[in-house]
Amino acid sequence: MRHIISVLLENEPGALSRVVGLFSQRNYNIESLTVAPTEDHSLSRLTLTTVGDDRKIEQITKHLNKLVDVVKLVDLTEGAHVERELMLIKVKASGAQRAEIKRTADIFRGQVVDMTQNTFTIQLAGTSDKLDGFISAIGPASVMEVVRTGVSGISRGEKVLGL
């Protein structure tokens, strides 16, 4: 199963490489990874998605917790949560195609953030599934370039991952 693990990490040099190194060293895979400082600049928030059975995920969270730079972590998929991924996608759009693509973007609540005579650059946020859905709706033939941030997420309700 796919899990979203969200980590509060000391914002120290080398901390990220320890997390990434752990995954390669123990043969766990990372599907996506996002990281940035939080409102408290001594901390980074790192979100990663990985796939594995319960046993593997348990080992992953235990080993992450053992890293001295890891302050706290939560497996968001264990409870209700909101997940989002941002995508910027540059697509071919000329002639009659333009209206069609615009309409598809609207349906997916995407925004055109840049355009030329032959292209649209569309910004889209949502679950990874939704972004995948948009790409197939547009048709891979029209896609010129895709940039995705990877998943980030937060628990629903009053639960917080903080100090």
Partner: peptide, 11 residues
């Protein structure tokens, strides 16, 4: 003392 050693190979 190491939680990661528990149920790593044998549950």
């Amino acid at each position: 003392i190491d939680p990661a050693s528990i149920s790593k190979t044998v549950t």
